[in-house]
Design a protein around this nucleic acid. Structure first.
Lengths: 133, 133
DNA sequence: ATTCTTGCAAATCATTTGCACTTTA
DNA sequence: TAAAGTGCAAATGATTTGCAAGAAT
């Protein structure tokens, strides 16, 4: 198993117990969880955990660039530790979010007048599972 | 000038005065305005306008499919009347949102397990204007 | 007359902030 | 002990909702 202590240090993030637990959770559960899901799950292990700490931690992770934030739906942010560029598909029926492989899309778009920092491709629809049932 | 009365009827939307004004504003100002911008601007012409009506109207427009909603940033929704598929670029410095032409991206992505309903491509960075100054 | 639209005020809910307490180097 | 991390409680702010009054056919 990867050393998340070192991983955090690499990003100039002090590796406190809570922070290690959060990044571990994100690395283990690549389900694009919300703050609340992460909080509820970690609460089982850390009964004193506060949601503010989860918010603080994730905000710091996003600022330092170790974690990506997805605004795929307006009313809840989701967090993603996957570093390989990919798109996201959200099923409108079951709410599940899937990773989608993408080719070199950036090179296909005329972006000569812009300096690109972030690239988000969100697709919404119905997943196979929900289509069959 | 286009008849927005007919345009709304085509989408089974009763063309009330307020609704015509909102769709007219979106058609004239393709700047992806927020609810608040639309409200503030229309208030100059319609002093009795309420923000709830703007919310109701835009919600209806999105449901009926005449207008697209952009969740490019978490804390404010933006609305778009442009019907030609395109991507959006947001400048992190000046906050401006630009339309970007896109080629046939959908055909390049493996989506055989999904039924696509919506397709959103958001790019963030710095625009030319902000880079030079 | 009935159905649809409008709009005020209150509610909601994810996220942020102020501040005091605790931990770490 | 100074700096950083944690967490409660309150604040914020965009959006939604309940409901009563007004407008359209």
């Amino acid at each position: 198993m990867k050393s998340f202590k070192k991983e955090l240090k690499k990003y100039c993030i002090y590796p406190s117990y809570h922070r290690i637990k959060v990044i571990e959770y994100l690395a283990k559960h690549k389900t694009h969880p919300t703050v609340d899901i992460i909080y509820q799950e970690l609460l089982k292990e850390i009964p004193t955990l506060s949601k503010t700490t989860v918010y603080n931690t994730l905000k710091l992770f996003v600022e330092k660039g170790i974690v990506l934030v997805l605004a795929i739906d307006k009313n809840e942010l989701r967090y993603d530790y996957n570093t390989i560029p990919h798109a996201h598909f959200k099923c409108e029926k079951c709410g599940g979010i899937y990773d989608i492989e993408i080719p070199e899309i950036e090179s296909l778009i005329r972006l000569k007048d812009f300096k690109v920092i972030e690239f988000h491709l969100y697709i919404k629809g119905i997943c196979k599972k929900c289509l069959t049932f």
